[in-house]
Design a protein around this nucleic acid. Structure first.
Lengths: 336, 336
DNA sequence: CAAAATTATGGAAACATTTTCATAGAGTCC
DNA sequence: GGACTCTATGAAAATGTTTCCATAATTTTG
């Protein structure tokens, strides 16, 4: 049988209340009493029961992380960082993966609510929209939007500066002499896609180039879309000289098509991507990409969430962190 | 304010007890009452409070998943499946990532213990060994070894049949006419590496071939080892005609080296791997590999754990599930 | 030196459930 | 037709904490 606070109290010859205060360093407790409590607790190997603890304040010591998948952006480093940081603050991390599906997302939102998590770090699914529920929940508990957003200024958010990133890499390609740069992008409803498109167009405009409709392929952030769009682009009268793949998944499709058509990077075509993965370094040739510091993203998200939890504010002014992007130049783009 | 069972009871004109029974489908409840309860619950948007629920039985409704990383084997599908299944049984999943480090692993083991998790699904870290603590913990709560094991027969385990898998793919290469098949493998302390080596040797022996020491490169499951070992093998007097990369990380290193040396797969060299990832399909040429059904692995692990939790047995006979492997033939190996 | 503030502790309520016990009507058995 | 069993429900206990309220002792303030 595991020791409860009652057992500690009995052993120390004190009341539960005092033991609780001593252990939590809340109210007044004398030095001597504190020592007695600590010794008794140690002797009994007492560990507070997490559930009973959470029962009172009505939030558990859990925070929910609801994301589309555990790869690319949400890979080891992000999740690892979050786990570690949260554990250090005595929070557990409850991971849910909605797999871009709104129905699963909904289920998990409810679940996290039921589990009375203290807060949620949330990435919208691509297919479907539960933001109504999200905003509703946000009235009771802090929610941080991570990496994606549907509407600006409503919730706290930690985002990549996608406008800047897209502009940066498009400029780079323009600098190499490319004039027909195609953009294969995913869903348009989210700021991610919108902003990347925006940054791309911005760079073109700055260079005095018109945005050619046929070079912009908006579909989904999927391998299928990347594959099909790439085929399509190659079948155009005037094929592009550079491709900007809007995500890792899209990139996979692009690469698949190029292999199938026996088109070589970068001699026949330059390719650049968004976000970095180890496989992009391994690829022959290594792929140039725009990346963000994911650890930093994780850091801000957790930090902000913990702050919101510790200083409850009924209607806080939404904060927004915009993460700078960095261009990782490899060998997949050549000058023309 | 969130609705409690009390509110539901009041609205339905019943007692808390009846509502509880109705919602949990435990004791006797009439059809009519059940309907009333469900309607009231729906109207109030009632969600049971998880912690009050867990307070009763002495274990939290959490189970711990302690794994090295969230990629390759432990990717979306595995974690997604586990989350879903566990949630369906009213358990939460607490994810911890030890990143192959024994010190982190230790920390998380203690943490999971403190949090009174009802059980742990556990994958040993490669660097270092906490199995003593693991066995100690296993006396109090069910622990399932996942995918890796240090010693047979002590704990419940869900493992891939690595002997069979390695044998299968080695046979395949032998069938293509290869006689000099190199194996680049990781740590030897875990059954994973041991068994894959064993299966490899088994297939060679069956074919009446001697196991050439110089073709076996045991190091770590890392990209670095793959890279170095591949270089080394190519510098041998008689270079191998086929490479068996012991993990995805090792494979990355192998591919990197081959690119650097301008060696083409499969014309110059055949390459096969263990475990499947989307990038293996994308690679040019797509890489042949031995894979296991990860969903099945997740399924057995969760199933077994839930069984152990529901039927507590002080000293259960350890169960072992061995998952069959399947050979996924792509285009990275050619007949010689 | 009296009043007020601070320090220290215990008793009991509160948290939201589940579970046990009690009660009682309705069938069923012999 | 009495003894049982089955069905259905409610009251209350139990779970392990934290927090609120009360009570004193001690210290500070005016």
């Amino acid at each position: 049988m595991v020791a409860t606070i009652k057992d500690v109290a009995k052993r120390a010859g004190l009341s539960q209340a005092t033991v609780s205060r001593a252990l939590n360093k809340s109210g007044y407790v004398s030095q001597e009493t504190l020592a007695r409590v600590e010794q008794a607790a140690a002797e009994l190997g007492y560990q507070p029961n997490w559930m009973a603890r959470g029962l009172h304040g009505k939030s558990s010591n859990l925070i929910g992380l609801l994301v589309p998948e555990v790869m690319s952006l949400y890979d080891n480093s992000v999740i690892q960082y979050m786990t570690e940081k949260l554990h250090a603050h005595n929070y557990g991390l409850m991971l849910c993966i909605h797999n871009e599906r709104a129905d699963l997302d909904l289920k998990y939102l409810q679940l996290l609510h039921e589990k009375r998590v203290a807060g949620i770090i949330y990435t919208h699914p691509l297919n479907g929209d539960n933001s109504e529920l999200v905003h509703q929940l946000a009235e009771h508990l802090p929610i941080i939007e991570l990496n994606r957003r549907r509407e600006a200024g409503l919730l706290d958010a930690v985002l990549a500066d996608n406008i800047q990133g897209a502009r940066q890499i498009t400029r780079y390609l323009l600098g190499l002499g490319h004039r027909r740069i195609a953009l294969i992008m995913g869903e348009d409803e989210l700021t991610t896609g919108q902003n990347r498109l925006h940054g791309y167009q911005l760079a073109l405009t700055e260079a005095g180039l018109p945005a050619d409709r046929r070079l912009i392929r908006i579909g989904s952030f999927s391998r299928q879309h990347g594959e099909a769009a790439m085929h399509d682009l190659l079948d155009e009268d005037v094929a592009p000289t550079a491709i900007l793949a809007g995500s890792n998944r899209i990139l996979m499709g692009v690469l698949k098509t190029l292999t199938a058509r026996n088109i070589h990077i970068p001699v026949d075509l330059s390719v650049a991507a968004f976000n970095d993965t180890e496989w992009l370094q391994i690829w022959n040739p290594p792929i140039t990409t725009v990346d963000i510091a994911v650890e930093e993203m994780a850091h801000w998200a957790v930090d902000l969430l913990l702050k919101r939890i510790s200083v409850p504010d009924v209607k806080p002014t939404p904060r927004e962190y915009l993460l700078g992007t960095s261009l990782i130049i490899r060998e997949s783009c050549r000058a023309v």
